[in-house]
Amino acid sequence: MIHVQAVLPVVAEAVDKGGGIFPLQLIGFALGVLGLVFFLGTAVGMIRFPDFYTRMHAAGKGDTLSTMLMLAGFALVTMEDFSLGSWLLVVKIMAIVLFLYITCPTSTHALMRAAFEDDEMPLEEKDLAKRKKK
């Protein structure tokens, strides 16, 4: 932080001020940590699941919800007062959540369809059992 203060006085001032409303901040912290927990599920699933299709389930769902929770948490944490400006910031952050709500399932579906139409990807349970044994 020291160097940042030296170069950008405006930024440093804003960092030092760093207000916030305490009860809202607590909710925000809780939401953020919850998001991290769900993202942990995704990360473990990405490593542990046996084949591409099941990994897709882990990634496509955990991604959406954890991002939503974390962004909502940060929207609450950074809210300084109830003025119009900070409300607009919250709405803007929630707009990101809305866009993700539309785009995430779409990209999941697009990748799934691509894999399904490509011949090199096996789908049967036998292949899965083989991979599990390995």
């Binding site: 769900f38 599920g41 995704t42 473990v44 699933g45 882990a58 769902k61 955990g62 919800l65």
Partner: peptide
């Protein structure tokens, strides 16, 4: 969606779900 994530979490973390 929340239920979905709990489900995936269970599948990923526990041996039984796997």
């Amino acid at each position: 969606v929340v239920l979905a994530n709990v489900h995936v979490f269970k599948l990923a973390m526990t041996r039984k779900g796997y």
